[in-house]
Design a binder for these strands. Structure first.
Lengths: 157, 157
DNA sequence: GTAAATAGGACTAAAATAGTCCTTTATGTC
DNA sequence: GACATAAAGGACTATTTTAGTCCTATTTAC
């Protein structure tokens, strides 16, 4: 587990489509048609992405969305931040609520280190990288261990 | 977001207590008392940890649990695997179900790279590290950016 | 035999996520 | 100026996941 939400994954589809589109400006409906996602969902995603300033929008007739900056300048961390809020591996490292286990907690600090390491990994991968590894013919499945195992019916999203 | 579950976090409390205990064998009830968690919850966690062979158990009267190997040899990744299943950042990289977005998916491969990077970070931190950073007097809060911000009411779990 | 423990799994409750819909605002076109 | 198109914002529902509890069976010390 420790996974990104479906919506974040969809968000990368949406951004990928904007990055690859020839058009200057693509409507949510077009993105929905191109990605196979429903319009309400795409719409919701684009609104969030716009609020995070990863895409910019034009309202009204012939309006739509485009990337707010170059694909190289959009990292996986940016996308996750936009759609799930800031990355933080434990709840108590992000909440403002008091941690009721503080008295017994003998771990804690290292999660922050892990957090930073994960963050770094996510910062280093840009939308361009996500596009580059675009549908290789033989697909791979990651089954928990850092070893890619080829499977006949493997799939990716 | 992109966080470990509460139970996994609790799991580290439980393992920490076993690691620090003088006793050879600690019952679930003792762990519950020491950690402030409920017995059913601790019991569930220890059962999962035992199945993953991170702890070993002795049944019957005077039974209990102990670490199955040295604390240095238990990584954060091991704990997450035991309590949440294998780490995989996207659903379709772990499921056996077909990915219904495959046709439109223009990302995918790079998530696996990210997965490996995260995995590496989690592999490198052991239970000993988690114990070492044990309750520093001034506590830190990680607010999304890889910068630790000190707050008056910060807490950790 | 009995009490103290773990093993396994079923079940319920709570919370987070996903997905949809409605109303408002902005903008181009006729 | 009216109308059509499209985004903005938010409310709401449904679904799924996670958390937490409980019950029964098995094992072992005394």
């Amino acid at each position: 587990m420790l996974r990104i939400s479906k919506l974040t994954d969809y968000g990368t589809f949406v951004l990928a489509h904007l990055a690859l589109s020839d058009e200057d400006c693509v409507s949510a409906a077009d993105v929905a048609a191109a990605t196979g996602l429903s319009l309400p969902t795409v719409s919701k995603l684009l609104k969030s992405l716009a609020r995070a300033e990863l895409v910019s929008s034009t309202r009204g007739a012939h309006g739509g969305y485009r990337l707010a900056r170059q694909a190289e300048a959009i990292s996986a961390a940016d996308v996750i931040d936009a759609l799930e809020g800031p990355v933080s591996i434990t709840q108590c490292s992000s909440d403002d609520s008091p941690c009721e286990h503080e008295d017994h907690c003998s771990v804690g600090g290292s999660w922050q280190q892990i957090n930073v390491a994960i963050r770094r990994a996510l910062d280093e991968v840009t939308l361009v990288d996500l596009l580059r590894t675009n549908r290789p013919a033989p697909r791979f499945k990651f089954a928990g261990l850092p070893i890619a195992i080829e499977t006949p019916s493997a799939k990716k999203s």
